[in-house]
Design a binder for these strands. Structure first.
Length: 918
RNA sequence: GGGCAGCUAGCUCAGUUGGUUAGAGCACCGCUUUUACACAGCGGGGGUCAAAGGUUCGAAUCCUUUGCUGCCCACCA
């Protein structure tokens, strides 16, 4: 017999337990296999950790992700799958560089990049990334994550760099990567391009200015950005617009617009122009607006770049504006328009401002020479294992991305995100992958600087794309090669994550064992950034899907549903809740009440509630251990000695089945709630109390404890492992035990009867006691009468009914001790067919408490009267249902039978109560 | 402008293919320190399931419309 401390103190156990897990080596599937803990028939289960950015520390959203993934991992591992959960971190290029720049500026370095230079600056970034990485890893461990640290990866390490270079080269050779001068999203603060989906929109009120370019110009236009008009090449009007039809195709020259350059403006017809907005005419600025750029392409118009990468006006805007900031230029253009009487009006309109998703700065669209991935170019996919795409078929990247979802090779949970995914792909444009920042994978492209400085041969201008550093120009033989200064979009390398982490481009055993991965669990907020790009990169590179299922979780919000942010001061730090309430409570509060794809509201109270539950489980075990002198680890389903045993074992069996099927269908919350109900309500509140009365339950308690620890382990690994150790001392880890299997045993009828009779009698006894304010300490007497069940509508007691009554009598009498104990009764008399006055519990059972001296007669009358009222309502509802011929004709007979039974039962009750009132 | 969710007890949410008098946790009220647990136990109150219409014998559940709330997407200059 062992005794545990009264309350569970997570701090005393968690670190040691994690250490034991880690030292066991079983986070690594190779070791599980070596020790025969893998069931060959089950195969592999693999999952990559969505690598957290090394921009800082983990927040509660990460904790939620870790809780879900660790739950699945432990569950699969306990089932005998060859289970791999592969960890790593993401260099997060722009984000990390921006962060470090900020920190250095705070330290007093005004322009860190300029002052330090590339190498020193990068060293600073790496130092920061390393520190951040260490914190992240530590936090993962604090959460109990059972990841295989021996396979840890980084999106910017050597192995991943090889994968990046190899894929880049392959895509270039297939013509899917090209270099082009095109309009890109430019962040003047980050001084880099951004992909389309890295641009966010913020609603604002903008000033809309209406004016004419010149006195002679026939059409007024409206714009929110007058300074860009210095780069206008056309005015677009709707072809339907009668006001402007006559001007279409005319050309105008505006001398010295805004005091700057001359403009050549052609009037063009564009169907997309809204005749009701502004003047119904749009000034077209191809270099600084995506829409206008497309119009220019369609109409063969020139592109005049008047804003540069620093957000300053170029000389194309005219000498007057050269080098001036955009905002300054705007004011000057407006001023000029007013001075020249061209200005018509100024009004406020709602407007969407494009901003950088990393730094929030306004995006400047501008034309630039960049590297792109062509999503529409056709190519052939050798080694295709994509269903519906043969190795000889021509495909595009877009088509690949659509196909794997269409053919259900990849399933997205919840499936509503599939629609969103398709919509995104349909609108997808070529992906700009080059970034003008320093922290990232250098683009594996070199340029020849000539055999003899600047004297290249024809053909030398072709970029030299190579996995390894090329020694000389293959065209002219020069060794004077210079690498492209740009780096790659961080999502280019994280897009390779499922296979680059498994050793690709080498043909490794890991790739064979673990790819495609089984599950990708991540937030819906990076569906496009990451999930879609992994699908793109993996299907293209391997001809394989990256994962079979995508489970998307939502955001963790505060108790009011607001996003957590430092400025609001509502951030819940997982380390704080772990330290205050324990990792298990933190995990449960993130797992339960959380449904796929939906945001979760979290409050301190919620975590507290689960801390209470952890402690409850601890105390349940504490009590059980007091009653299990010799805990045994290998358990078989024990034999039930009493009805209560049958009852609890039946419920346990159901619980195993429900837990498993809920986890299997990704309903983690339901699984946990079911387990909690069983543990707290059925086991603790009923069965353990019964065990105190009946005694002699060592074997069954041992079985139940053993089983629920296993069932709970994936949810709350620490406390279960701690109890396991206390129970079985030197035994092996709970983590590696076999997850309980549902035994197909049918629910025992007696188990149901236990609820129908015993539980009902006790509950009624308790509620009557409370109603009549009987002191809990005073034990009273009761009378229980057992008559024929109302199901047989006959007054005569034939043999069959007699037998039924006898059996029922025996059944209830057998549980007298429990009834007395839990109902706090001194003495219970049993009778047969006495039709006594009392509470009618249905099925012919009547309960009467001896309340002599305690009963307030008037109060009792009131109570009965109320009960009659409610019963009458109930009865009339059923009667009207049953008298409805439509119902009787259409409803299935089972439903009608049920209604009839309910009616009979209610009627009997009411007649008995009326009797009593007399 | 297009799309997707959500609207069920004071709060957070369950409610699987339509079929008990719609459930749980927290909070609330009353009682209890009955030796596993007061981070507990027992009992209790509380909802016309956002609104309207429709389908059906029967709707929280299916359909239509509307209203809020949130999110995503989009080239109204």
């Amino acid at each position: 017999m062992k005794e545990l401390p009264k309350a569970y103190e997570p701090k005393k156990y968690e670190n040691d337990i994690y250490k034991r897990w880690e030292e066991s080596g079983f986070f690594n599937p190779d070791n599980c296999e070596k020790f025969g803990l893998v069931d060959g028939a089950k195969g592999s289960f693999s999952m990559v950790l969505p690598p957290p950015n090394v921009t800082g520390t983990l927040h509660i959203g990460h904790a939620s992700m870790l809780a879900i993934q660790d739950l699945v991992t432990r569950y699969k591992r306990m089932q005998g799958f060859r289970t791999l959960w592969l960890p790593g971190t993401d260099h997060a290029a722009i984000a990390t560089q921006t962060k470090v720049e900020k920190l250095l500026i705070e330290k007093g370095i005004k322009d860190p990049k300029k002052e330090l230079g590339r190498d020193k600056f990068l060293a600073e970034v790496e130092k920061f990334a390393q520190e951040s990485h260490d914190t992240i890893i530590d936090q993962c461990k604090k959460m109990g994550s059972s990841m295989d640290w021996s396979r840890e990866s980084y999106t910017l390490d050597e192995a991943r760099n090889l994968a990046v270079r190899t894929v880049f080269k392959k895509m270039y050779d297939d013509g899917l990567i090209y270099r082009g001068y095109r309009l890109v999203n430019w962040c003047p603060r980050c001084k880099s391009t951004l992909a389309d989906d890295e641009v966010e929109h913020k609603e604002q009120i903008a000033k809309l200015y209406t004016f004419k370019y010149s006195k002679d110009f026939p059409i007024a236009i409206a714009t929110t950005r007058p300074e860009t008009k210095l780069g206008d090449v056309a005015v677009a009007v709707s072809p339907e617009d009668v006001r402007y039809a006559k001007y279409i195709d005319q050309e105008f020259v505006i001398k010295n617009f805004g005091g700057g350059a001359d403009l050549k403006i052609k009037i063009i017809a564009e169907a997309g122009v809204d005749t009701t907005f502004g003047t119904g005419a749009v000034g077209v600025t191809p270099a600084h607006s995506a829409t206008d750029y497309e119009m220019a392409q369609r109409n063969d118009l020139p592109i005049i770049k008047i804003i540069d990468e620093d957000g300053l006006m170029t000389k194309e805007a005219g000498e007057k504006y050269l080098g001036k900031a955009v905002k300054v230029a705007r004011a000057e253009v407006v001023e000029w328009l007013k001075a020249n009487n061209l200005f018509e009006k100024e009004e406020e309109v709602p407007n969407n401002l494009s901003i950088c998703y990393r730094c929030g700065y306004a995006i400047e669209p501008l034309p630039s020479r960049q590297w792109f991935v062509d999503v529409n170019k056709e190519f052939i996919l050798p080694n295709s294992s994509i269903e519906g795409i043969k190795s000889s078929d021509k495909v595009t990247l877009k088509k690949l991305m659509q196909q794997v979802i269409n053919n259900k090779q990849i399933e997205i949970i919840p499936d509503r995100f599939e629609k969103i995914y398709f919509h995104w792909i349909n609108n997808l444009r070529d992906w700009c992958i080059s970034r003008q920042i320093w922290y990232g994978h250098r683009i594996p492209v070199w340029y020849c600087r000539g055999l003899d400085k600047g004297k290249c041969l024809p053909g030398c201008e072709k970029p030299l794309v190579s996995v390894d550093v090329p020694q000389k120009c293959p065209n002219c033989g020069s060794v004077d090669l210079v690498q492209d200064p740009d780096t790659l979009d961080t999502w280019f390398s994280s897009g390779l994550w499922t296979f680059s982490t498994l050793g690709w481009p080498n043909k490794t055993i890991d790739l064979k064992n673990f790819h495609p991965t089984s599950l990708l669990e991540t937030g819906y907020d990076i569906l496009f950034f990451w999930v879609a790009r992994m699908i793109l990169m993996t299907t293209y590179t391997l001809g394989q899907i990256p994962f079979e299922k995508v489970y998307l979780h939502g955001l963790v919000r505060d108790e009011k549903g607001r996003k957590m942010s430092k400025s609001l001061g509502n951030v819940i730090n997982p380390l704080d809740t772990i330290s205050e309430f324990g990792a298990d409570a933190t995990r449960l509060s993130l797992l339960l009440g959380n449904t796929p794809g939906n945001d979760l509201k979290l409050s301190q109270e919620k975590v507290e509630g689960f801390r209470n539950f952890t402690n409850k489980l601890w105390n349940i075990s504490r009590f059980m251990l007091l009653n299990i002198p010799n805990p045994k680890m290998d358990v078989k389903l024990p034999e039930a000695k009493t009805v209560s045993d049958k009852w609890i074992l039946t419920h346990l069996s159901e619980t195993i089945e429900d837990t498993r099927s809920n986890i299997d269908s990704y309903q983690f919350s339901l699984a946990g709630e079911k387990l909690r109900d069983f543990t707290w309500n059925e086991l603790a509140d009923w069965y353990l109390e019964i065990a105190k009365i009946e005694g002699g339950k060592e074997e069954i308690l041992n079985y139940i404890l053993n089983t629920i620890l296993k069932l709970w382990h994936p949810f709350m690994p620490f406390v279960t492992e701690a109890i396991w150790k206390e129970t079985y001392r030197d035994a092996e880890l709970l983590m590696m035990q076999k997850y309980p299997d549902f035994n197909q045993k049918k629910a025992e009828e007696e188990a149901l009867l236990f609820e129908l009779y015993i539980v009902r009698i006790i509950s009624k006894t308790r509620s009557l006691r409370a109603d009549f304010k009987v002191k809990p300490s005073s034990k009273i007497n009761a009378l229980i009468d057992i008559a024929g069940s109302v199901f047989i509508p006959t007054v005569e007691i034939d043999q069959q009914i007699e037998k039924e009554i006898q059996e029922k009598f025996k059944f209830i009498k057998n549980n007298e001790a429990i009834i007395k104990g839990l109902g706090r009764l001194e003495h219970v008399d049993f009778s047969m067919n006495k039709f006594i006055n009392g509470s009618h519990l249905g099925r012919g059972v009547t309960l009467a408490l001896d309340l002599a001296g305690v009963v307030d007669l008037e109060k009792e009358k009131d109570r009965l009267q109320k009960e009659i009222e409610s019963l009458n309502k109930y009865i009339s509802g059923i009667e009207s249902k049953l008298s409805n011929t439509d119902f009787v004709e259409h409803a299935p007979s089972a439903v009608i039978e049920k209604e009839k039974q309910k009616l009979a039962e209610a009627k009997e009750k009411i007649s008995k109560i009326s009797n009593q009132l007399k």
